[in-house]
Design a protein around this nucleic acid. Structure first.
Length: 260
DNA sequence: CGAGTTTGACCGGCGC
DNA sequence: GCGCCGGTCAAACTCG
């Protein structure tokens, strides 16, 4: 008895089914990422509101009490919330820094100030100063000078690094290029967890699909070619919020659609 | 023992 | 010119 031979039609249907499933997987992935982007935007909006609100929101601690980061008005500065007991001046932002000096105190701030040089690339001119906020000593203020002449995320892409970032969420701002800010999305130590739990909630009946989504997301967040345009899209969206009501992040993420 | 960090000394800019 | 201050250097130190 001859084995069943697939007709061209059946082959095409199988392929179509496969493509549809892949499409569905990618859609879910995109929704998850978009959700994270909205969350980030919403959080940044909170920060802006808090800063505009002055001391009122500061006292409430609704923003600062969260163990996360926020961006100052100046693009060359970032603030990083640390554990109150953590006295180190390390801000893990994805680059490798060599400390070359520290001042015990400065005129306007009694906290010690640390000086770092980027040494991801030998000729990289970027420097940063890290000092605790005078208002809230659990906040580190990192001031960046110069522009990186090399890629980013090398550190963050190491599998071990995400678990080693104990207190800070890695985040990088390219100080001299206001249009360019790179945010590593695996940076949110909780992101992968969120994705996992979110998927579980919505895809409880489809474990293999869930696993595939996780694999895809895991792969994508480690891909600078995906993350950097995504980060730029987020920044673009944030920047244009003041001019337009809201820029659809999905549109910005549309660069992925040809792969679907 | 080498790489990374610490810390006091040094240098240059700035205001008086 | 002097003193103050921020930034940098480099020797000593620490740690794996």
């Amino acid at each position: 008895m001859p084995a069943h031979v697939e007709t061209p039609k059946e082959t095409l249907e199988v392929k179509l089914q496969s493509v549809k499933e892949e499409n569905r997987t990618l859609r879910l992935m995109m929704e998850t990422l978009s959700s994270k982007c909205r969350e980030l935007q919403s959080y940044l909006q909170d920060i802006n509101n808090a800063e505009q609100g002055g001391t009122k929101s500061h006292q409430s601690g609704s923003v600062l009490a969260r163990p996360e980061f926020f961006i100052a008005q100046k693009p060359s500065q970032i603030f990083v919330k640390t554990h109150p007991k953590d006295n180190s001046l390390m801000v893990k932002d994805g680059y490798q820094w060599k400390k070359y000096g520290q001042k015990k105190a400065t005129k306007d701030n009694p906290s010690p100030r640390a000086y770092f040089k980027c040494y991801l690339a030998p000729s990289c001119p970027v420097k940063k100063r890290v000092q605790r906020s005078i208002k809230d000593r659990s906040i580190l203020v990192a001031t960046y000078e110069g522009k990186h002449n090399h890629g980013v995320f090398r550190d963050l892409l190491k599998p071990s690094s995400s678990t080693e970032t104990s207190n800070n969420l890695p985040m990088t701002i390219m100080p001299n290029d206001k249009a360019t800010m790179n945010i590593n999305l695996c940076l949110c130590n909780r992101t992968q967890t969120d994705i996992r739990t979110g998927d579980c909630a919505t895809q409880q009946n489809d474990r293999s699909s869930n696993s595939r989504i996780k694999d895809c997301v895991s792969f994508l967040v480690k891909d600078p070619d995906f993350i950097i345009p995504l980060a730029e899209a987020i920044v673009h969206s944030i920047k244009s919020q003041s001019k337009q009501k809201q820029v659809s992040l999905n549109l910005n993420l549309g660069v992925l659609e040809p792969h679907v």
